[in-house]
Design a protein around this nucleic acid. Structure first.
Ligand code: MN
Ligand code: MN
Ligand code: MN
Ligand code: MN
Lengths: 219, 219
DNA sequence: ATTATATTTTAGGCAAAGCTAAAAATTTGT
DNA sequence: ACAAATTTTTAGCTTTGCCTAAAATATAAT
């Protein structure tokens, strides 16, 4: 598989996750910052190789083979991200672009050894699950902070938006994965929240809350 | 720079090392397993970018810019090789192909952090020197085992041929870098050597001896 | 000094992956 | 139901990096 084919497969995988329906040509084009016509060209090639199901004008979805391929790439991407943070002391906002390159390195042995070096991590630095060698992974039971009730207590376990600007914002405000969170108040007017995080009270906008995942603590 | 451009620059660098004269189109083509006409095409592009000096029919040599570029790629290649051996327990015959891919990952910060993780190694697993961040490296004072006199004592410090088959041969015969070597006899007829290596006596062919580097011990 | 051989370059083409502009199909609005 | 708007595909063109075959130049042999 070429690098470009891998990137398309991965994009279709990510778009397909939220909802099982077919992924549109335009959605792929937008996410990949390319043109719809280029997407159509590539889809034909992927369809030819039985990586995607495709009927003209009907959108596209991954076959089982395509899904396994995508999981392999996602596994590599996320393991490299863990490596960059754990072994090379990168911060979580610096790793995505480098992992975009590293995910295309071809060597099963390499990635399995890396997995071992990192002690078989289950989640990446952004809280996303890492598929194992067989493509299996457990989606953690988590909720967006913007969708829980007042009084909810939990632990911050992931981010939905992992853009540099959002991650740097979190760093500046001392919000990190693993921190205890309690929702104290929710402002009707703009949906902003008053929370206690890691022993500190603070006010966060609805925007922020809708990009933070928490795992709700049992009572 | 594209991956292909980087591979050409690296090849020209390696061919240029042994002798300062210009490198021929055919030599590049052969080493890269491509056609001379393709080489000519690429040379023009590299010349345009001031990475090589080129006059038609006169061969090619790296400019200062080209040399610095090549050293950067060689640095990456060899650091990744050390990483694979030291951190992921690969053997020295498995690493070259993977390093061929990893050497093209673009991130200065990544490579400097890797250098630090490995504790700034000066030589790669085949005994080749690793350029530092500024492209400086010290060529070790070493000689081919085939070119020293009877009675010479030294330490095995490198291999000239680092093909899988040669490296596996060395493994099978318990020859490794760091081993003490003494030349006991040299057979006139076929140039084979009787040596003592790591406390064991053995007979090696001229072929083998001409691909092993030793650092001669002071008396 | 020619001729023969080997090397290098040019000319013309191909496949991958992208683009723009136009056509076709689908979806939406009235 | 039909027109309008949107989405998707097709057609045709570009660049990169490679190829083969032929021409040009350099080197070696007589
Ligand atoms: Mn990422
Ligand atoms: Mn991630
Ligand atoms: Mn190597
Ligand atoms: Mn090496």
């Amino acid at each position: 598989m070429t690098r470009s084919e891998e990137n398309y497969i991965k994009t279709i995988f990510h778009l397909g996750r939220q909802g099982m329906e077919a992924v549109s040509t335009n959605a792929i084009a937008e996410l990949m910052e390319t043109k719809p016509s280029s997407v159509t060209d590539m889809i034909k090639k992927l369809s030819e190789k039985d990586l995607v199901n495709y009927k003209r004008y009907q959108g596209v979805s991954l076959t089982d083979l395509g899904t396994q391929t995508a999981l392999g790439i996602v596994r590599k991407h996320r393991l490299w991200e863990v490596f960059l943070v754990e072994k090379l002391d990168f911060s979580w906002d610096e790793i995505h672009d480098i992992a975009e390159q590293l995910e295309h390195i071809k060597s099963d042995k390499l990635i399995d050894r890396l997995d071992k070096l990192l002690d078989y991590p289950k989640f990446d630095p952004h809280g996303d699950p890492i598929p194992d060698k067989n493509g299996d992974f457990k989606e953690r039971d988590r909720k967006l902070l913007s969708e829980v009730a007042i009084g909810t207590k939990g632990v911050c376990v992931g981010v939905k938006d992992s853009s540099t600007s959002f991650l740097k914002f979190l760093d500046r405000n001392h919000i990190a994965l693993g921190h205890q969170i309690e929702v104290l108040e929710i402002e009707e007017f703009d949906g902003s929240l008053n929370i206690n995080i890691n022993e500190n009270n603070m006010q966060i906008s609805h925007q922020i809350a809708s990009n933070l995942y928490i795992k709700i603590s049992e009572q």
